[in-house]
Nucleic acid binder design. Sequence first.
DNA 1: ACTATCGGGACCGCCCGTTAGT
DNA 2: ACTAACGGGCGGTCCCGATAGT
Lengths: 201, 201, 201, 201
Amino acid sequence: MKKREQSQQTKLALLEAAEVMFATSGFESASVASICEAAGVSKGAFYHHFTSKQALFFELMQRWLDNLESHLKEIEAQQTELPDKLLSMAHIVGEVLEIGGPQLSIYLEFWNQAIRDKDVYHALSQPFDEFLAFFTGLLETGMESGVIKKADSEMLARVIISLGVGLLFQGLLDPGAADWDKVTTYGLNILFEGLYNESST
Amino acid sequence: MKKREQSQQTKLALLEAAEVMFATSGFESASVASICEAAGVSKGAFYHHFTSKQALFFELMQRWLDNLESHLKEIEAQQTELPDKLLSMAHIVGEVLEIGGPQLSIYLEFWNQAIRDKDVYHALSQPFDEFLAFFTGLLETGMESGVIKKADSEMLARVIISLGVGLLFQGLLDPGAADWDKVTTYGLNILFEGLYNESST
Amino acid sequence: MKKREQSQQTKLALLEAAEVMFATSGFESASVASICEAAGVSKGAFYHHFTSKQALFFELMQRWLDNLESHLKEIEAQQTELPDKLLSMAHIVGEVLEIGGPQLSIYLEFWNQAIRDKDVYHALSQPFDEFLAFFTGLLETGMESGVIKKADSEMLARVIISLGVGLLFQGLLDPGAADWDKVTTYGLNILFEGLYNESST
Amino acid sequence: MKKREQSQQTKLALLEAAEVMFATSGFESASVASICEAAGVSKGAFYHHFTSKQALFFELMQRWLDNLESHLKEIEAQQTELPDKLLSMAHIVGEVLEIGGPQLSIYLEFWNQAIRDKDVYHALSQPFDEFLAFFTGLLETGMESGVIKKADSEMLARVIISLGVGLLFQGLLDPGAADWDKVTTYGLNILFEGLYNESST
DNA sequence: ACTATCGGGACCGCCCGTTAGT
DNA sequence: ACTAACGGGCGGTCCCGATAGT
C-alpha cells in the first residue's frame, strides 16, 4: 500500500528532523513547530504520529538503542580471538560516534532526559546493563583462560566503559581538540598492559 | 554597610536557589519565577543582580570553577611525592563530586550550555586546558624521573581525564549503581600498573 | 471552504479591534491581550495570523493606504474639468477623515511609527510621493492651459498638502473646535484666488 | 546655596535627557531607567524631582510652551508694520522648528499625549487659543485698515495655522524632502496674494 | 493522513515606582 | 539630595496540544 509507505516516510522525516533539532538546540529549546518545519509537515502530522514531544524523543532513543544493539551483535559475531575482542572494544566507541553521526550531542539529551525522566532512565539502563554484562563476561573469560590477571571483572568493565563515556562526552564538547579515536585505543592499550599476565606479554 | 550585606545575601540566595533548580529541572525548565520563589525574592531583585537567566548561569559556573581551582591548588600543595600525587588524582573526582554536592547534575547543564553557547564554552575550556596542562606536567615529571615509562604525556593525561569525566557522568546518572569512588581508584591503579617501570614496581 | 472564511473573519476581527485599540490607546499602550479580547479570539489566533504586533500594525496601514488609493482614483475618474478637480482636493481631506472613521487618531500612530520605523516610513512615503506627483501634475496642466499662473508646481503642491495635513492633525486633536471641512474649502479658495489668472477670474 | 544649584542641575539633566529619549523613542517606549541613565543619575533622583514619568513630560511641555510664548512676544514687539507682521508669521514656524532643535519629534508626543490626556490637552489648548486669537486680531487689524480684504478672520487664521502645522509635521517626518522654510514663505505669500486688496498691490 | 486554525497558558524580560539607607 | 535594592506586575512572544475540516 502506497499510503502506508507515505505515512511511514512522514514519520521518519519527523524523527530525523527532530534528531537534528534536538542535537543542535536541545530537547527543551527545540520546538515542535521547528521540527515540523524542518520535516516539511504540519503540526497536525506530528501529533498524528506522536502523542507528544516526549514520545517522539522516546521513540528516537529507542531506535538508536536498537541500532546500537545490532551493531554490537555484529562486532560480537565477527571477532573470535579474545585479545582481539578486547581490543575491538576500542572500535565500539568509534561505532557509537559513527552512529551518532554529525548529531552527536543527541547523546547529551539522552543523558539529560534519563536523569529527569524515569521512563527514559529505564529504557536506557536495561541495554546499558546488558552492555556491562557483555563486557564483564568478556573479561571473565579472559581471566579464566589466564590471558589477563584475575581482577574484579565488573569493576574493570565499569572502568573501561567510563573511559569510553568520558571520551565520548569530551569528543562531543570539543571534537577537534584531539584525535579521540587514537586516545581511545591508546587508553585501552595502557589498561591492558597493566592487565596482561607477564607470561602472555 | 547593612545594605551591602543584605544585597549580597540576596544575590547568593538567588544563586543557590538557581543551582538547585537547574540541577533538578535543567536550565530551560527552571523558570526565573521559580528561582525567585525558591530564593524568596522578587523578579525585580533577580534582574537587579543579573542581566538574564543566562548571566546567572554563567556566574554560577564561574563560581564553581573558582571553587574547583582553589581545591585543586590545595591538593597540589599538600602532596609532594610523585606517586602520591598521581594517586591523589583519584580524589579529585571525589572532590568534584563533593563540591557539586547534592546538585551534581548541574554539571550536565554546564556541558549542555558549553556545546551551545560560545561564551560558556570558552569559560570552561580555559580552566580545562589548565587542568590538562597540570596533569601533563605531572606525568612528564614522572617520566623524566624514571618513575613511569616514557609515553605521550598529553594523550595519557587525556585518558585519565576522560576516565574521570566518564565516571562523573555515570555517577551522575546512576549514583547507586556502584561505589564510584572505588571504581576511580581502581581504574587509576590499573592504568599506573601498566605505566610504572618494572624497577619501581 | 467554511474554514477559510472563518479564518479571514478572525483576521479581520483582529484588524478592526486593533484599529480601535491603537486609536484609543496608541500603539504601545494597546496590548495584544486587549486586542485579542476585543476581537474575541485567543492569543494563539493572533500569532497565527500575524508575526508580531508591529506586523499587524503594518498590515493595518497597508490596507488603509490601499483604501485611500482606490478612493483617490475614484475622485480622479469622476472629475474632468480642471477647476473642479482642483477644488475637489478639498473633499479629499474629507474623504480621508471619512475613511478614518471614528478612529481618526490612528493616523497619528502612522506618523509616529513612520518616524521610528524605516519600513513603515517607506511604506508611507511611496504612496505619498505618488500623491504629491498627482497634485503636481494637476497643477502643471493648469498652468500650461493658462488657467492658473505659472509657479513652482511642486512647491505649490506641497503647500496644498501641508494645508491638508495640518487641518487633519488639528481636526484630530480638536474635532469640535471648527468645521474643518469648511476651513479646508475656504483655505483652498484663498490659495487659488491668488493663483487664477485675472482673465479667468 | 550650592546644594540648590546642584539639585536644579540634576533636574535639568533629567529634563534634557527625557526630551531626547521622548523624541527618539516616544513617550511610552522611553523608559524611566533609560532617561536616568542618559542623565547620569539614579532612579531615586528621578522620583525625587518628579512624581511620575507623566509629570516630567508635563513639565517638559510646560517649559516648551513658556519658551515659545516668550519667542512670540519678542516677534510681536519687534515688528510694527502690518504687512511685515503678517509675513513674519512665516518666521514663527521657523522659530518653532528652531526651538525644537534636533528633537523635533517631541512635538508629535505633545500631540499624542494631548489626544489621550485631558490635562495635557488643556495645557496645550490654552496657549493655542491665545495663539489663534493673536493671529485673528492681526488679520482683523489688517482688514479694518483695508490692507487686506474683508474675510472671516478666525477661519483665515486657522488656515494659516493649519498650513504651519502641516509643514511642521511633514518636516518632522521627512526633513530632507524639501526646504520647508522656503515652502512656508512661499505658501504664505500665495495666501496673501489672494488677500491683498488690488489697491495695495 | 494531513492541514489550517485556534485555545490557553507560561515564560523572560522589563518597567514603574517605593523604600531603606547614606 | 541621591543611591542601590527591591516589589509586584504586566507585555510580547512562543509553545504545546486539540480540533474542525478535507
